[in-house]
Every structure is written in structure tokens, then in C-alpha cells.
Design a protein around this nucleic acid. Structure first.
Lengths: 92, 92
DNA sequence: GACATATTTAGACAATTGTATAAATATCTC
DNA sequence: GAGATATTTATACAATTGTCTAAATATGTC
């Protein structure tokens, strides 16, 4: 399992970004305005998430739209279930 | 979901320790000798894992035995499945 | 209690990381 | 192309972290 994935998940702001994206795709600006930190800092977090393949992007004119890459989350779940998933994990 | 949990998982040595513990309980010394870093460094990692409640300890004479806290792993799986688990995650 | 073994804690240091400001790039409109 | 908006990239800096050595604590044996 890729190291960048877990490092990306380690920051609370990035996890909040991911949770925000579960509600639907968002542009970088829409994401950034939800956080009290500088726009460029959020952009940096988005770069980390993208490098970890947790999100994907698509340009839409001047905007760049971010969406969750759900495939990778399934891999995360699989990682935990295969290695550490005792009973209970299967249908939790 | 607790911040310390994801931070604990972010380090590759700590993940290797967890994977080692899936094979069975180990004393701190048995764990440490599997890694090329100083004994004290492994001890520090064990402390981080314990603070995140990913492992539990039990003293056995001079030894301290570490074991996985599988309950927390089930919570991790649940975290990902409830928030990010698209279709497929349920029975992956 | 003295000594050996097992483990943690303390202190120091280099590497990594999160944030900020400023500059650069990309797209759109006129 | 000039100017506006959207976003990223570059650079700097403080905070956090992983590792080390050395000292401290805990247990067991004599």
C-alpha cells in the first residue's frame, strides 16, 4: 500500500476536504472557502490528495473541479480488512 | 475519528509493526529486533501506536507484550465505509 | 542491595510538513 | 493584447516528527 496514501490521510484538513467531496464535486475555490487557511495552503493540500490518488481533477474553463476517487478508498478498506479485519469487519 | 489514529498510521515503520502483530503478540524486544533502527526508536513508535489505541500492552515479568487492538481497526474500516464506501465496499 | 535484562523517557538534532505571502500560469471577456 | 478571475508554484519559516544516544525505571536473580 502506497506510503503517500496514509501520509495524505494524516492531516485533518485533508480529511475534511475528502468528507466535503463526499457531498459532491467541488471546484478548488469552493473547497478553499470552507477553510480558515490561505487559498494557497488548501491548494497545496489538494495537491497532496491528488498525488495520493485520493482525488481526481478536471478542468472546466477557469475552474478546476475536484472529485473523490472512490476506487482508492475501496483499496484502503480492503487493506484494513485483509490485514486487520477480525470477525465483525466483514459486515460492519 | 481521532486525529492520533491517522497520524499513527502515517509512518511505514508503524504499519509494519502492526502487520507483524497480526501474526501474533510480541514483546517490545521481539518487535524491535525486526527493524534496523534503534531500540528506543521502536519503543517510541510503540508509544505512538498505544496512544492511538491501535495496540494494547500487558506486562509479563520483565517483558511487555504488545497485541493488536482489533476493535479500533474495525472502527477504521467503518469510518471509510460509511463516509467513502461507494458500492463494492460492502462486500469487497 | 548489587547486578543483569527489558523497556521507556529525556534531550538533541536533522528531516518533513503545514502555513503564509508573493509570483507565475491558465482561462475568459472585452 | 489588457485586465479580471481561478488556481498553482516558489520560497520562506515555524512546528512537528523520526531517529539517535544517554539516562531512568522496572523486573528478576543472586
Amino acid at each position: 500500500m502506497d506510503d503517500s496514501l496514509f501520509r495524505a490521510l494524516a492531516d485533518p484538513t485533508r480529511r475534511k476536504i475528502l468528507e466535503l467531496l463526499t457531498q459532491g464535486d467541488r471546484t478548488a475555490g469552493e473547497i478553499a472557502e470552507q477553510f480558515p487557511i490561505a487559498f494557497a495552503s488548501v491548494s497545496h493540500h489538494l495537491g497532496v490528495l491528488k498525488a495520493a490518488d485520493l482525488v481526481a481533477t478536471e478542468r472546466e474553463g477557469q475552474f478546476i473541479r475536484y472529485r473523490l476517487n472512490t476506487t482508492v478508498f475501496q483499496e484502503v478498506v480492503r487493506y484494513f480488512m485483509t490485514r486487520f479485519g477480525g470477525e465483525g469487519a466483514k459486515d460492519a
